[in-house]
Simulated assay, not measured.
Amino acid sequence: MENLIKRVLVSDNAIKIIDQLRERHGELMFHQSGGCCDGSSPMCFPKGELMLNENDVKLGTIHGCDFFMSKDQFEYWKHTQLTVDVTTGRGASFSLEIPLGLRFVIKSRMYTDEEREHLEPVQSAEEV
């Protein structure tokens, strides 16, 4: 089987925060929001707390957490590899890291032509 290129990655700093949040809240999930109020930040929730539907897709898994995005937003971002990172500062969302004085952020880069031929497939949230 060929090695597929992941659509979403996670930084070492974000892994540390995910571990802290998992200890406190159990299994987690991420959703890359597209709303105006949260600055389009990736949001972390207890697994199953955010209701997903046919308008969401799963891009992959980061540090044991499913990572979702709306189909409409994925159309804009499908040419980029996303990396979840963390920074200081409070975001304006309901994400679990906010009380820690931190917020998850997305860093992105364009895929190369070769990488685009070997991307992990996305799944409908309904299939997960």
Rank of each mutant, 00 (worst) to 15 (best):
L4C: 08
I5F: 03
K6Y: 07
R7Q: 09
L9M: 12
S11L: 02
N13P: 00
A14V: 02
I15D: 04
K16Q: 13
I18H: 01
Q20T: 12
L21K: 01
R24Q: 12
H25N: 13
G26M: 02
G26V: 05
E27M: 10
L28N: 07
M29R: 03
F30G: 00
F30C: 03
S33A: 15
G35K: 15
G35T: 15
C37A: 08
C37E: 11
S40V: 06
S40Q: 12
P42H: 03
P42S: 04
F45I: 01
K47C: 11
L50H: 14
N53G: 12
N53F: 03
E54R: 09
N55G: 11
N55Y: 09
V57D: 03
L59V: 11
L59W: 04
G60F: 01
I62Q: 03
C65L: 07
C65A: 14
K71S: 12
D72P: 05
D72A: 14
D72T: 11
Q73H: 13
F74T: 04
F74M: 10
Y76S: 14
K78Y: 01
K78R: 14
H79M: 15
H79S: 14
Q81D: 04
L82S: 12
D85E: 08
V86Q: 07
G89Q: 07
A92R: 10
S93F: 05
S93E: 02
F94L: 14
S95P: 05
S95D: 04
E97C: 00
I98P: 00
P99M: 05
R103L: 06
I106K: 03
M110V: 14
E117K: 13
H118W: 06
H118N: 13
H118T: 06
E120K: 04
S124I: 08
S124D: 13
A125D: 07
E126T: 15
E126L: 15
E127H: 12
